[in-house]
Amino acid sequence: MPQFRLLLNGNLKELARLTTETTRFCRQHSLGDDVEFDLHLVLEELFTNSLSHGACRGAEDIAEFQLSNDPDGVTLEYADRGAPFDPTTAPAPDLAAPLRDRPAGGLGIHLIRQIMRDFEYQRLDGWNRLRMRRPIPAEKPK
């Protein structure tokens, strides 16, 4: 199973590296534009969440992610060293709320849940460990 792993520092500038490396992985394995877009989005949301909520900002090697693909989809494992937080049970934002009442947060996790399947959380040895899959529908080869 082809795999790719990257360690990230607690700095928003790392987003560019995350994006470049994810693109490289997707193109190497001909995963298609839709999958590439979704992985960029999910990884950005995970990483910026780590930076804003996890007290990880400014430190080195605060997060790591791993991508592995098989014919049915891509498995993403993401971990950060921040405060314990389980996004799989976070409340959903009220998307129908009027503009002035709409909460600023929670949208990133909502997007991850819309895109990914089999979303799992574990707190292990001081790390938040997430695992999820982006299925690739068989009937739509790219």
Binding site: L41, T48, L107, L111
Partner: peptide, 12 residues
């Protein structure tokens, strides 16, 4: 080409 929740927040 791309927008994340941070971009959406800017629009909102």
């Amino acid at each position: 080409d791309y927008i994340s929740s941070a971009g959406l927040r800017a629009v909102l």
